[in-house]
């Protein structure tokens, strides 16, 4: 049907609202039959962390980074009205009320729809994030792989 269409999204931000928007657009594009790639870099990488991953041995600096960054999709803050963590709880409530989907549900749907979730290895190194801390089923790559997908796609977004 639409095998030749594609959408790529660079997920640079790691806030709940921005990540939610990115996943909704990605899942919508997959429903259009697009080949979809989401490229997670910098703060966006925190979305793909596995909450229950065992502790990984790290250097001091990397451990400091780890303390300051959210661990997984349930720990993300809002870009507006975060109110020291009360905002995300409020958002979870309205998501339920309006029968919308949470970020973990959107990630699961993305996997079902065959969306390619790519973690940027260079920024993983910068932020001291190890593969062992990440969810299963991810692709590890760099900008080269991203551009390869982006040049074939007709919708390319940066969030």
């Amino acid at each position: 049907m639409e095998e030749n269409k594609g959408t790529t999204i660079v997920v640079f931000s790691g806030e709940l609202d921005k990540v939610m928007a990115a996943f909704i657009i990605a899942n919508g594009a997959a429903a259009y039959g697009h080949k979809v790639t989401m490229f997670f870099t910098f703060w966006g990488l925190n979305t793909l962390k596995n909450e229950s991953a065992p502790k990984v041995k790290k250097g001091f600096l990397e451990r400091m980074f780890g303390w300051m960054m959210p661990k997984g999709p349930n720990k993300l803050a809002l870009s507006q009205m975060n109110f020291l963590g009360a905002g995300p709880k409020l958002i979870q409530h309205v998501i339920k009320k309006h029968n919308a989907m949470t970020v973990p549900q959107l990630i699961e749907l993305a996997e079902q729809q065959g969306i390619n979730l790519v973690a940027c290895t260079m920024t993983m190194d910068l932020l001291g994030i190890e593969k062992e801390e990440m969810m299963d089923g991810l692709t590890y790559a760099g900008v080269g792989a991203y551009i390869g997908d982006a040049e074939k796609a007709n919708t390319n977004l940066f969030i």
Binding site: I24, I25, A30, A31, G33, N99, M101, Q113
Partner: peptide, 14 residues
């Protein structure tokens, strides 16, 4: 019915 964006088109596609 009752499902919000993007589920209607996702379900339709499936």
């Amino acid at each position: 019915k009752g499902l919000s964006c993007p589920m209607p088109i996702v379900r339709a596609k499936m």
